[in-house]
Computed example of a mutant assay.
Amino acid sequence: MKRALASALVSAQFLLLLALALLPHGTLWPVHLAVVFGAIVLAVAGAVFAVLGMLGLGPALTASPIPREHAPLVTTGVYGLVRSPIYTGLMICGLGLVLLGASVWHLVAWLALVLLLAGKARWEERMLVAEHPDYAAYGARAGRFLPGMGRLKP
């Protein structure tokens, strides 16, 4: 059951990202050069942050929110800033796609992605607390998606 839920969450996350890339463009705001530039900056920055998160995990990296058994707890690099840099990067990248898309459907898909990743992060963190005795202290000092925001209560 746990693995099925993990697979469903990962699939939903990729479907929402795909929707952000493929939804028809809207007219909520004009998409001029400054908007395109901002969207590219956000998409690239988000992708870089997500990749840094993936590289930082090393042997603990898994596509599933279920932590690998006996994998080390990573608290350095981008993980020293936020606990979920891969999710943060996906949200930032998605926001860039929203800017380009300029539609209500892009906003809805992005909000659904944010809510999905927030729920996924909370579930993942409960498992990490059970797996790593030091996770609670780490969570009390590092924000969930943004530095200083969403820290765990000590």
Rank of each mutant, 00 (worst) to 15 (best):
M1G: 14
A4Q: 11
A6W: 09
S7G: 15
L9A: 14
L15M: 14
L18F: 15
A21W: 14
A21T: 01
L23S: 06
H25W: 07
G26A: 08
G26H: 03
P30G: 11
L33H: 08
V36S: 10
V41D: 11
A45D: 07
G46M: 09
A50N: 00
V51M: 13
L52V: 02
G53D: 08
G56C: 09
P59S: 15
P59C: 05
A63V: 09
S64Y: 12
S64V: 14
I66L: 15
P67V: 15
P67G: 13
A71V: 00
P72F: 02
G77H: 09
G77I: 11
V78N: 07
S84V: 11
P85A: 12
I86E: 01
T88K: 01
T88E: 08
G94H: 06
G94C: 08
G94E: 08
L95K: 01
L95R: 00
G96K: 07
G96M: 05
S103A: 15
V104E: 02
W105H: 12
L107C: 15
V108R: 02
V108D: 03
W110V: 01
L111Y: 08
A112D: 07
V114P: 03
L117F: 06
A118R: 08
K120R: 14
E131Y: 01
P133G: 08
D134L: 13
A137F: 00
Y138N: 05
G139W: 06
A142N: 05
G143W: 04
P154W: 01
